[in-house]
Design a protein around this nucleic acid. Sequence first.
DNA 1: TTACTTGCTATATTTTTTGTAGTATCATCG
DNA 2: CGATGATACTACAAAAAATATAGCAAGTAA
Lengths: 110, 110
Amino acid sequence: MLSIANTTSGAGGACPVSAVTRLLGSRWTMQLIHHLRQPRRYSELQALVGEVNPATFTQRLRFLEQQELIMRHEDPEHARHVEYALTPKGRELLPILDALAAWAQKWLLV
Amino acid sequence: MLSIANTTSGAGGACPVSAVTRLLGSRWTMQLIHHLRQPRRYSELQALVGEVNPATFTQRLRFLEQQELIMRHEDPEHARHVEYALTPKGRELLPILDALAAWAQKWLLV
DNA sequence: TTACTTGCTATATTTTTTGTAGTATCATCG
DNA sequence: CGATGATACTACAAAAAATATAGCAAGTAA
């Protein structure tokens, strides 16, 4: 039996889909990861993602860092130069985001 | 000017990932679709998804129906019997949810 | 020196989500 | 036949999340 199937019965506790949405479900998260395909600086990322509020944006970065989906790297030579990059854990979401993007291309942006 | 503007996103308008998150980004949405692998009645779905608030839950169902990801079917014989099911558009998200679940299995649930 | 950029933080306001209660309609049981 | 219970919601106040806007310290460029 598939492990996905038997988790559908519970009250959402151990269901992997609900586990995922606790990580990726809040606003901007998926865009953020998407735009971190290559390492980016704070302001760069902010511009790419769009109309994000800086407080939310920073909070999301901190959360994703804490969950080990991204890494924050501050250049000690030049402070004020901060780069964010995906961890392996985060990088493995990219094919899924690609699939979502393909779905969107097909069904949304015709 | 840097090449930020001519990428897929710019200000988030036409980026397929941001388009997707406008549909799936709010809470419960992905769980909802996941549990609609087979058609379900309102209360059944509610129990599966877990601790959802009924107002949010209904709002989400209405929104997904409006976006044509799910269909609402009311049995005319027995009113009060309502079933929700995925449309083809919605059904094509299931492999992606499977991939997310697999990612969760690997990285989240030991 | 002065102005500007970067990577944030602070605060008040708006929007979303929640908790809890309630309701109309029907079926079923006694 | 009336009481009881389930179903599919709706209503409304309160809590939580997101937003707009302003500001700030440290560095960099002119």
